[in-house]
């Protein structure tokens, strides 16, 4: 019993820290509910109404179908853009001549609006799935290249010399010396990439596909159905958070275990 006060204080502090994110979320919901009650307009439905729509759309299978279509496009374009961007980023970061040659292309691509790329891809290749994926990849690729290039520029010269000296060869050097140093940059490009890609995919779907989140949002926009728009948006945010918590964070923790 003598240890109770110490235990209690620690327990309460830990509990409060754990409850903080939940309290933050509840505050946001409360604020939303209050504002919806105050405005009393279909333009801002209250949270429970959005939850009802979310449940209804899930039950009917509409939300999983369209969410699945968007996620497939996200996986496809991400799987193409990341390896390509990493390879090009390493090349430009380590080869001054290649960097000097391609730098202007990169700056140009970075400054082309996503909408222009999407329209041009649809005009040139037609309203087909490959054109949609290609448009997303073209939009994402320059960002990945720039991030990875920065990482490749600051690789530890001492370790590269050590690898050369001990005859690691290209494969061992890439896996054991270069990749671990690029990992934080790859994670950064991944996070920024996922956030950017899904937004671009919505535009791609809105302009030229007959399924996916973008298509559905466009439909509900025409009907001025804000509850459905919010329901689909929340569903996608939840999925992205699950990707962050279940895939990205564990990957990051595993890669950082060597740190003191």
């Amino acid at each position: 019993m003598a240890s109770l006060p110490k235990f209690s204080v620690t327990y309460i502090v830990n509990l409060l820290q754990k409850l903080l994110p939940i309290a933050s979320l509840l505050t946001l919901l409360g604020f939303w509910q209050g504002l919806a009650l105050l405005l009393d307009s279909s333009n801002l439905p209250p949270p429970y109404q959005v939850a009802q729509v979310l449940w209804r759309e899930t039950e009917s299978g509409q939300l999983p179908y369209h969410l699945g279509a968007t996620l497939l496009r996200l996986v496809a374009s991400f799987s193409i853009a990341m390896p390509l961007g990493c390879a090009a980023g390493i090349l430009l970061g380590r080869n001054a001549k290649a960097d000097a040659f391609f730098n202007h292309w990169l700056v140009m691509l970075l400054n082309v609006p996503a909408l222009v790329t999407i329209i041009l891809c649809y005009v040139w290749f037609g309203l087909v799935e490959s054109a949609a994926i290609f448009a997303v990849v073209v939009n994402k690729l320059p960002n990945v290249i720039v991030t990875i290039r920065e990482g490749a520029r600051v690789l530890d010269k001492d370790l590269l010399e050590m690898a050369h000296c001990y005859q690691f060869g290209a494969r061992k050097t890439l896996i054991h010396v270069i990749w671990p140093q690029l990992y934080p940059f790859v994670m950064s490009a991944t996070r920024a990439g996922l956030a950017l890609i899904w937004k671009i995919i919505l535009i791609v779907e809105l302009l030229g596909r007959s399924n996916g989140m973008g298509y559905q949002l466009h439909l509900y926009f025409q009907l001025f159905d804000v509850a459905s728009i919010l329901a689909y948006t929340i569903a996608f945010i939840v999925v992205m958070q699950l990707i962050e918590q279940l895939i990205l964070k564990p990957l990051e923790q595993a890669a950082q275990q060597w740190r003191r």
Binding site: D158, C165, Y166, K172, H176, A255, W258
Partner: peptide, 21 residues
Amino acid sequence: GYVFQNPRLLPWRTVQENLEL
């Protein structure tokens, strides 16, 4: 075999992995 002024070990690999490489 080169012993540099600073050890230049790969910090993300264990001692044994550094040696195996």
